[in-house]
Design a protein around this nucleic acid. Sequence first.
DNA 1: TGGCTGATGCCCT
DNA 2: GGGCATCAGCCAA
Length: 181
Amino acid sequence: MTVARDLLGCILHTEHCAARIVEVEAYLGEGDLAAHSARGITPRTQVIFGPPGHAYVYFIYGMYECLNLVAEPKDVAGCVLIRAVEPVRGQDLMEARRGNRVRKARDLTNGPGKLTLALGISRREHNGADVTRRTSPLFVTEPDVAIAASQIETSSRIGIRQSTDLPLRFFVRGNPFVSRP
DNA sequence: TGGCTGATGCCCT
DNA sequence: GGGCATCAGCCAA
């Protein structure tokens, strides 16, 4: 939960692109039925139970991939879903990868499935990547512009059917790339 | 502007 | 075989 808030403002880097994280959701280990880790270790969820600072990329609804960052020590479940980012570098490439249908700038990366497409993130190439190393195909660096605590807004999580009441979604107030206010 | 729906593949029971 | 941490397009107002 603390990690989730700290990730706001951080910069996510892939090979040719960089983007600022503006919306996240925390998924806890115990008692959080909405989390993929709720039923223990499976082939899909083993990364979540590994060391922190690694990427958990999963496939959903038959066509989208979503990016999480593992937040808890080894053997403890807990991760942060990256829900929206603001492009910083490589915007042309993001547009090319998203296709010509994108009309407004914010539609490029204002959702978990959209940002993985735009940044070129996939299970095959990025699941399990160590995001603390600059040599990694996917890594995170400190904020270029600090996000004040007063700018962080909290809400319940989006798109889930279990544990819908927990206040575990965090986003930057007023940022146009946030998926929903 | 907001609500509904089809697309589509994988994971787990 | 059911359900899913989604998205874009369509429709009614």
